[in-house]
Amino acid sequence: MAQPSNNRRAAAVPLGDREPRRAGGGWLKWLLPLLALLLVLVLVLAMRLGGDDDASTSGDRSTATAAATATSEASAGTSDAGAATLTAGDRPLRGDDAESLTAAVGQQAEGTGATVLSVVSGTGFWVGSSDADRVFVEYGSTVGTDESQPYKPKVGDVVALSGEVRPAPADPAQTLKLGAPDAEQVKAQGAYINAQDVQAQ
Protein backbone atom coordinates (compact mmCIF):
# COMPACT_ATOMS: atom_id res chain seq x y z
CA MET A 1 0.00 0.00 0.00
CA ALA A 2 1.41 3.30 -1.06
CA GLN A 3 2.22 5.91 1.53
CA PRO A 4 0.41 9.23 1.17
CA SER A 5 2.74 11.92 -0.11
CA ASN A 6 3.48 14.93 2.06
CA ASN A 7 3.68 17.13 -1.03
CA ARG A 8 0.15 18.26 -1.45
CA ARG A 9 -0.75 20.26 -4.48
CA ALA A 10 -2.59 23.41 -3.77
CA ALA A 11 -6.06 23.38 -5.03
CA ALA A 12 -6.58 25.35 -8.21
CA VAL A 13 -8.08 28.76 -7.62
CA PRO A 14 -9.88 30.53 -10.45
CA LEU A 15 -8.06 33.66 -11.58
CA GLY A 16 -11.08 35.85 -10.98
CA ASP A 17 -11.02 35.03 -7.29
CA ARG A 18 -7.47 36.25 -6.72
CA GLU A 19 -6.95 39.72 -5.26
CA PRO A 20 -5.02 41.89 -7.73
CA ARG A 21 -1.54 42.85 -6.68
CA ARG A 22 -1.28 46.46 -5.58
CA ALA A 23 1.15 48.32 -7.79
CA GLY A 24 3.48 50.75 -6.07
CA GLY A 25 2.42 53.57 -8.52
CA GLY A 26 -1.33 53.38 -7.89
CA TRP A 27 -1.45 56.95 -6.67
CA LEU A 28 -0.48 58.18 -10.15
CA LYS A 29 -3.93 57.34 -11.52
CA TRP A 30 -5.35 60.03 -9.21
CA LEU A 31 -2.55 62.56 -9.55
CA LEU A 32 -2.44 62.72 -13.35
CA PRO A 33 -6.09 63.79 -13.81
CA LEU A 34 -5.68 66.40 -11.06
CA LEU A 35 -2.58 67.80 -12.76
CA ALA A 36 -4.40 67.87 -16.10
CA LEU A 37 -7.32 69.73 -14.52
CA LEU A 38 -4.95 72.20 -12.85
CA LEU A 39 -3.19 72.81 -16.17
CA VAL A 40 -6.52 73.48 -17.91
CA LEU A 41 -7.51 75.95 -15.17
CA VAL A 42 -4.17 77.77 -15.46
CA LEU A 43 -4.55 78.02 -19.24
CA VAL A 44 -8.12 79.32 -18.99
CA LEU A 45 -7.07 81.88 -16.36
CA ALA A 46 -4.10 83.01 -18.46
CA MET A 47 -6.33 83.41 -21.51
CA ARG A 48 -8.86 85.45 -19.57
CA LEU A 49 -6.20 87.71 -18.08
CA GLY A 50 -4.48 88.02 -21.43
CA GLY A 51 -7.83 88.77 -23.05
CA ASP A 52 -8.51 91.55 -20.51
CA ASP A 53 -5.10 93.08 -21.23
CA ASP A 54 -5.74 92.84 -24.94
CA ALA A 55 -9.20 94.31 -24.48
CA SER A 56 -7.89 97.23 -22.40
CA THR A 57 -5.07 97.80 -24.87
CA SER A 58 -7.60 97.65 -27.66
CA GLY A 59 -9.80 100.06 -25.70
CA ASP A 60 -6.85 102.42 -25.22
CA ARG A 61 -6.11 102.21 -28.93
CA SER A 62 -9.77 102.88 -29.74
CA THR A 63 -9.80 105.90 -27.41
CA ALA A 64 -6.58 107.24 -28.89
CA THR A 65 -7.91 106.70 -32.41
CA ALA A 66 -11.17 108.45 -31.55
CA ALA A 67 -9.27 111.38 -30.02
CA ALA A 68 -7.01 111.62 -33.05
CA THR A 69 -10.02 111.52 -35.35
CA ALA A 70 -11.79 114.24 -33.36
CA THR A 71 -8.65 116.39 -33.44
CA SER A 72 -8.29 115.78 -37.14
CA GLU A 73 -11.93 116.68 -37.76
CA ALA A 74 -11.59 119.80 -35.63
CA SER A 75 -8.47 120.76 -37.56
CA ALA A 76 -10.26 120.11 -40.81
CA GLY A 77 -13.13 122.32 -39.66
CA THR A 78 -10.71 125.07 -38.66
CA SER A 79 -8.80 124.80 -41.91
CA ASP A 80 -12.06 125.18 -43.82
CA ALA A 81 -12.48 128.55 -42.16
CA GLY A 82 -8.72 129.18 -42.32
CA ALA A 83 -6.05 128.29 -39.77
CA ALA A 84 -6.03 130.47 -36.63
CA THR A 85 -3.36 133.16 -37.03
CA LEU A 86 -2.56 136.44 -35.34
CA THR A 87 0.41 138.24 -36.87
CA ALA A 88 2.04 141.63 -37.34
CA GLY A 89 4.17 141.68 -40.47
CA ASP A 90 5.55 138.17 -40.73
CA ARG A 91 5.78 137.56 -36.97
CA PRO A 92 3.18 135.73 -34.88
CA LEU A 93 1.69 137.56 -31.91
CA ARG A 94 1.38 135.47 -28.76
CA GLY A 95 -0.02 136.41 -25.40
CA ASP A 96 2.47 134.14 -23.62
CA ASP A 97 5.40 135.86 -25.41
CA ALA A 98 5.40 139.54 -24.42
CA GLU A 99 8.36 140.25 -26.70
CA SER A 100 6.33 139.23 -29.77
CA LEU A 101 3.79 141.92 -28.84
CA THR A 102 6.12 144.76 -27.83
CA ALA A 103 8.29 144.21 -30.92
CA ALA A 104 5.19 144.72 -33.08
CA VAL A 105 4.09 148.05 -31.58
CA GLY A 106 3.16 150.46 -34.38
CA GLN A 107 2.59 147.66 -36.90
CA GLN A 108 -0.69 146.49 -38.37
CA ALA A 109 -1.98 143.26 -36.81
CA GLU A 110 -4.03 140.80 -38.82
CA GLY A 111 -5.97 137.89 -37.36
CA THR A 112 -7.95 135.08 -38.94
CA GLY A 113 -9.71 132.19 -37.24
CA ALA A 114 -9.12 133.83 -33.84
CA THR A 115 -11.27 132.46 -31.03
CA VAL A 116 -12.91 134.94 -28.64
CA LEU A 117 -12.09 133.75 -25.11
CA SER A 118 -13.80 136.53 -23.14
CA VAL A 119 -15.53 139.86 -23.73
CA VAL A 120 -15.13 143.13 -21.80
CA SER A 121 -18.40 144.93 -22.41
CA GLY A 122 -18.03 148.22 -24.30
CA THR A 123 -14.24 147.90 -24.43
CA GLY A 124 -13.09 144.85 -26.34
CA PHE A 125 -12.33 141.16 -26.09
CA TRP A 126 -9.54 138.62 -25.66
CA VAL A 127 -8.48 136.23 -28.43
CA GLY A 128 -6.12 133.26 -28.21
CA SER A 129 -5.85 129.62 -27.22
CA SER A 130 -5.74 129.84 -23.39
CA ASP A 131 -5.74 132.22 -20.41
CA ALA A 132 -1.95 132.49 -20.70
CA ASP A 133 -1.82 132.74 -24.49
CA ARG A 134 -4.35 135.49 -25.20
CA VAL A 135 -4.15 139.03 -26.56
CA PHE A 136 -6.47 141.92 -25.74
CA VAL A 137 -8.26 143.48 -28.70
CA GLU A 138 -9.68 146.95 -28.00
CA TYR A 139 -12.92 147.24 -29.94
CA GLY A 140 -15.41 149.62 -28.38
CA SER A 141 -16.50 153.21 -28.32
CA THR A 142 -14.96 153.97 -24.94
CA VAL A 143 -11.34 153.80 -26.16
CA GLY A 144 -9.67 154.84 -29.41
CA THR A 145 -11.81 155.35 -32.49
CA ASP A 146 -15.55 154.76 -32.38
CA GLU A 147 -16.01 151.26 -33.81
CA SER A 148 -19.79 151.45 -34.07
CA GLN A 149 -20.16 148.46 -36.34
CA PRO A 150 -23.16 146.16 -35.91
CA TYR A 151 -21.11 143.03 -35.12
CA LYS A 152 -20.54 142.44 -31.41
CA PRO A 153 -18.21 139.49 -30.67
CA LYS A 154 -19.34 136.88 -28.17
CA VAL A 155 -17.38 134.24 -26.26
CA GLY A 156 -16.64 131.30 -28.55
CA ASP A 157 -16.96 133.32 -31.77
CA VAL A 158 -14.27 132.85 -34.40
CA VAL A 159 -13.28 136.19 -35.89
CA ALA A 160 -11.07 137.94 -38.42
CA LEU A 161 -9.62 141.24 -37.25
CA SER A 162 -7.21 143.98 -38.18
CA GLY A 163 -5.81 146.93 -36.28
CA GLU A 164 -2.69 148.61 -34.97
CA VAL A 165 -0.58 147.10 -32.21
CA ARG A 166 -0.31 149.76 -29.52
CA PRO A 167 1.83 149.96 -26.38
CA ALA A 168 0.11 149.13 -23.12
CA PRO A 169 -0.98 152.33 -21.36
CA ALA A 170 0.52 153.19 -17.98
CA ASP A 171 -2.85 152.46 -16.36
CA PRO A 172 -4.69 149.85 -18.48
CA ALA A 173 -7.49 149.58 -15.91
CA GLN A 174 -8.46 153.23 -16.41
CA THR A 175 -7.49 153.76 -20.04
CA LEU A 176 -8.91 150.51 -21.42
CA LYS A 177 -11.66 150.17 -18.80
CA LEU A 178 -10.44 146.76 -17.67
CA GLY A 179 -10.83 144.86 -14.43
CA ALA A 180 -7.69 144.32 -12.33
CA PRO A 181 -6.68 140.83 -13.65
CA ASP A 182 -7.13 141.88 -17.29
CA ALA A 183 -5.32 145.18 -16.72
CA GLU A 184 -2.38 143.39 -15.09
CA GLN A 185 -2.10 141.00 -18.04
CA VAL A 186 -2.12 143.81 -20.62
CA LYS A 187 0.55 145.65 -18.62
CA ALA A 188 2.70 142.52 -18.35
CA GLN A 189 2.36 141.86 -22.08
CA GLY A 190 3.26 145.46 -22.91
CA ALA A 191 0.87 145.85 -25.85
CA TYR A 192 -2.65 145.30 -27.18
CA ILE A 193 -4.42 145.50 -30.54
CA ASN A 194 -6.57 148.53 -31.37
CA ALA A 195 -8.87 146.89 -33.91
CA GLN A 196 -10.51 148.92 -36.66
CA ASP A 197 -12.29 145.96 -38.23
CA VAL A 198 -13.67 142.76 -36.70
CA GLN A 199 -15.80 140.25 -38.57
CA ALA A 200 -17.29 136.88 -37.70
CA GLN A 201 -15.91 133.92 -39.63
Score class of each variant (00 low, 15 high):
Pro169Thr: 13
Ala36Gly: 07
Ser130Tyr: 01
Ala132Glu: 14
Leu32Ile: 09
Leu34Glu: 08
Gly82Ala: 12
Ala70Thr: 14
Met47Gln: 11
Val119Asn: 08
Ser72Phe: 12
Gln149Ser: 14
Arg61Gln: 03
Trp30Asp: 15
Asp171Trp: 00
Gly128Lys: 03
Leu28Arg: 11
Asp97Pro: 06
Phe125Asn: 12
Arg48Thr: 06
Pro172Gln: 00
Leu117Asp: 02
Ser5Phe: 10
Arg9Ser: 15
Thr69Phe: 08
Leu49Lys: 02
Ala103Ile: 03
Glu99Trp: 09
Ala168Gly: 02
Val44Tyr: 08
Ala66Thr: 10
Ala103Ser: 10
Asp157Gln: 05
Ala10Gly: 14
Ser56Trp: 11
Asp90Gly: 15
Gln108Leu: 15
Leu37Ser: 14
Ala83Val: 11
Asp157Phe: 02
Gly106Cys: 09
Pro92Tyr: 03
Thr69Glu: 12
Ala109Cys: 06
Asp182Asn: 13
Val155His: 10
Ala84Tyr: 10
Leu37Thr: 10
Gly51Val: 05
Glu110Ser: 08
Ser162Tyr: 00
Lys177Ser: 11
Tyr151Gly: 01
Leu39Trp: 14
Arg9Lys: 15
Leu93Pro: 03
Ala114Cys: 15
Gln196Met: 05
Asp90Met: 09
Val158Arg: 15
Val105Tyr: 00
Pro172Lys: 02
Gly59His: 13
Ala2His: 14
Val165Arg: 00
Val198His: 03
Ala168Asp: 05
Ser141Ala: 13
Ala74Thr: 04
Gln174Tyr: 04
Asp197Thr: 00
Arg48Gly: 07
Lys152His: 07
Val159Ile: 15
Gly163Met: 02
Pro167Gly: 13
Val42Phe: 14
Ala55Met: 07
Asp80Leu: 15
Val127Tyr: 12
Gln149His: 07
Glu147Lys: 14
Ala180Arg: 11
Gly179Arg: 10
Ser148Asp: 10
Arg94Lys: 13
Ala195Asn: 01
Ser58Cys: 02
Ser129Leu: 11
Gly179Lys: 09
Ala88Met: 01
Val165Ile: 04
Gly82Asp: 01
Val155Thr: 12
Val158Cys: 02
Ala180Ser: 13
Tyr192Ile: 05
Tyr192Glu: 03
Asp53Leu: 09
Leu161Trp: 02
Ala109Met: 00
Ala64Ser: 12
Trp30Leu: 08
Gly140Pro: 01
Leu176Met: 13
Leu176Trp: 04
Val137Trp: 00
Ser5Met: 08
Glu138Asn: 12
Pro172Gly: 01
Asp54Asn: 11
Thr71Gly: 15
Ser75Ile: 14
Pro181Arg: 06
Ser148Trp: 05
Ala191Pro: 07
Ala183Lys: 01
Ser129Cys: 04
Gly190Gln: 09
Ser56Gly: 05
Gly140Asp: 00
Thr123Leu: 07
Gln174Gly: 04
Pro150Ile: 12
Ala55Asp: 12
Pro153Ser: 07
Asp133Cys: 09
Asp96Gln: 04
Ala195Ile: 00
Leu32His: 03
Ala76Trp: 06
Thr63Lys: 05
Ile193Phe: 03
Ser162Leu: 02
Ala173Glu: 00
Asp182Ile: 00
Ala2Leu: 14
Ala114His: 05
Leu15Asn: 09
Gly128Cys: 10
Leu31Asp: 01
Thr71Ile: 15
Glu164Met: 08
Thr112Ala: 03
Ala83Gly: 06
Tyr192Trp: 09
Asp97His: 10
Ser148Tyr: 15
Gly51Asp: 12
